[in-house]
Design a protein around this nucleic acid. Structure first.
Lengths: 185, 185
DNA sequence: ACCTGAACACCGTTCAAGT
DNA sequence: ACCTGAACACCGTTCAAGT
């Protein structure tokens, strides 16, 4: 039966997860799907658009924050959850960064995050900016860990990143942000 | 006379500044220098290494913070200065992000930043983490503005980013970080 | 409506051979 | 020491033509 766009996107996510952005090429994707490269352009305008759909797919798998939790705690928990999900996918920070810049509120996970920033007491005039700060810390941490992993592979003198230490570093930064927010209630 | 590595890097910076990472290819760079593509590999191991040198060149142009300023103020000023410098160069966030992940203290500007984080009273155990947070906010802001610019070019329905508003958003986030630091003195 | 085949204009990298 | 020429194994995208 005919190919669907969902099928194209799902296979793209799979390729990204397994081999990274360097191997997520239109030609490779077509091969994986058993079609000619040109066939993909019936389902997707171009590679950029495909990557936005891939970002949406990655973010849609993140569990929503549990209800009834204090907002600061929920914000921290969701931030860690988003980071945990993305850190497993090579180049996720690049892919999601693109999609976020264009449409910050397009996915539920990032809307939840903005909502919690509101709940924590940030005035409406600064809500988007603070949400962006949290997103930068998440994507920066993910990108940093991934870059260090690549660097260690390329140069055996460099130590590979320690996942626990990276997660800890992320939470230290997040705690600074949360302290900064409390004073603005 | 013979090509030098500095010459190769300087031309690469120029290409990045003028046309972005998409046009900073080894072949294009070789053409610009009037040599065969293979010639570049005498001066540089590969493209990755070239990009690290490019990042160093970009960061080395940033003015150091004036002495005698209160540390929190100097930290804010330097952060804004780094952002201002990078936001003018397409894809600077990607290029610098790579170099920073591998060698956070390799350039003076980023060492100054880490030093000011210390001066502001952050305990030694959290210095690197907080410096990374500030760097994430800088690079995230730069990447976000650039991604929005690209998106607006590709899709005329999207508004182009307003430079002043982007700068303001950055400073709001930075202020949150600084408030979070004050409590940890 | 959906896909193939073939082309166009590119990439990064290697390496024998030249000077 | 430094560079050329030529090759290898790729890219994203387009589009007439087929079913």
């Amino acid at each position: 039966m005919a190919l669907s766009r969902d099928q194209v996107v799902a296979t793209a996510v799979d390729l990204l997860r397994r081999y990274g952005l360097g191997d997520l090429t239109m030609r490779r994707l077509a091969r994986e799907l058993g079609v000619a490269p040109g066939a993909l352009y019936w389902h997707v305008a171009n590679k950029q658009e495909l990557l936005v759909h891939v970002a949406d797919a990655l973010l849609s798998e993140i569990p929503p924050p549990p209800v009834g939790q204090p907002p600061a705690e929920a914000l921290a928990g969701l931030s860690v959850g988003v980071r945990d999900a993305l850190v497993q996918v090579p180049d996720a920070a690049d892919v999601v960064g693109l999609a976020y810049a264009v449409r910050p509120g397009a996915t539920r996970a990032l809307r939840d995050l903005a909502g919690l920033v509101h709940d924590v007491g940030v005035p409406a005039s600064e809500r988007d900016e603070v949400a962006a700060l949290v997103v930068h810390q998440i994507l920066g941490s993910v990108a940093g860990q991934h870059n260090r992993r690549l660097a260690a592979l390329a140069d055996p003198d460099l130590p590979p990143p320690d996942a626990a230490a990276e997660a800890k570093a992320f939470e230290v930064g997040l705690a600074v942000i949360l302290r900064g927010l409390v004073r603005s209630r």
